[in-house]
Design a protein around this nucleic acid. Sequence first.
RNA 1: GCCGGGUUGGCUGAGCGGUUUAGGCGGCCGCCUGCAGAGCGGCUCUACGGGGGUUCGAAUCCCUCGCCCGGCUCCA
Length: 482
Amino acid sequence: MAKEKRLFEPLTSEEVKVYACGPTVYGDPHIGNFRSFIVSDILHRWLEYSGYNVKFVMNITDIDDKTIRDSALSKISIKDFTKQYTNSFLRGLDLLNIKRASAYPRATEYINQMIEFIQILLDKNIAYITEDGIYFDIDKYPEYGKLSGVNLTETQKTDRIKKDEYEKDSIQDFALWKKSTPEEEQRSKQEEGIAWDAIFDYKGKTVQMHGRPGWHIECSVMTRSLLGDTLDIHAGGEDLVFPHHENEIAQTECLTGKQFVRYWLHIRHLMINGKKMSKSLGNYVSFDEVLSKYSADAFRYFYLNTHYRRPLDYTEDAMLVASNSIKKLENTLDLIENSLQKTEEKLDYGSEEEKFLRKVIEEKKSFETAMNDDLDSHTAIESLHNISGAINEYLTGQINKGVLLKTQQIYVKLLKVLGLFEKNSKISDELTEKLIKTLINLRNQYRKEKNYQKADEIRTKLSQIGIILTDNNEETNWKIEK
RNA sequence: GCCGGGUUGGCUGAGCGGUUUAGGCGGCCGCCUGCAGAGCGGCUCUACGGGGGUUCGAAUCCCUCGCCCGGCUCCA
């Protein structure tokens, strides 16, 4: 509310309740959407790393103007339509290695609770019914605007608002329930998921209104059903501050009389080549397109290298930097593995080990400090580079495997917080491994005979199918390129 | 129109009154290597949108102008 960073203290010690606004499933999500999903993933992971038991909920909006409109356009039922894009969203989560939330509630599964919620607001005389719907009267909530700071008396009356076709007392009042339009009525005769029967008691009368919920009520109801009256953290894209989150606060606080959200986290939109990325401008990029060019890790790095509240511009340059940078961090993991395979090892613990360990632990602390400072993943990544450098440097000398394992563990754990390199598939199966080793031996035979032409041919051909060979002093290592 | 955010070296991206003025990527040189890759060591890169001002001293504070992005309307 104060637009400033505040020390995080959970409401209860047992569990941290987090809610993040998820997608409206009316199309394939683009990489802009995923900025906020990645950031909430980091929030999720960081809270767990910090020892909290996290209940993390992300909603799916599967009933609204756009899902109705676009399912009609594509001539399929809204159920099938939203299911298709829900799956597309979930697939994106997997591809980008986003940790699953505790639940992904869909709005259409909570219609009854929404009706009950609205009834209470009617009973409290905070909502009112008109010919075309039920509205929330913002005059009944004096604190309205406290999150976004919008001053409603000064809000410019844009054309859109002036043209508003809904019937309400004050233009700023927002819909809780929308009566179905004639077209919607028509459709709802043939399929489910367009409109629901709702009966309300209003001023001593019974009002029946076939319709659907307003957008804001969905989140208020689902948060309350799954997480209770007060959330610890509520996250979402910056565009949701007003009116969506403002309205959620108004509804929920009027109903419960309690504080709705303790900490808000709003994620800045992604840009592309200096412009806003949006569907309407047609300049959005799908995650499939990105992943065809760059690894998921590179893409995560791109997102996380900039603080979530700062502008982030998707450009080829930026992706190239991310791609190169991430390889460097990844190489360290390979170097560690290779070193651990070696038969020679240092059995003593000397000043190098002392210095090395101290450095790694110091960087681990810097990483933690950065993440505790409003999820400063950019600064945290700096620590990862420093750890990577320290490890690489240590590996140039004789290694103490115990010390190395310990630092490896720290490094991997911190990488995991950012969701990096969790899907390393080094070995596909035993047979493949044996086959590759046979080829390596053959090639090394050629190398001994100084038949470099043949040796290089093997290396080149393997690299063409994604198997990378690297020669070190005595041995040849291999890995599967991602 | 109103309200926010941004503007930093070839790229990315910190700093938010003064210590080496980040870090990463890239580039260059050396070591290693049959070569390549990776790694290590060294170097390069002195920048802060323009113009004023405050100060012993400003990327950092103030004023002013410019440009970009976002919100006020469905949007992650």
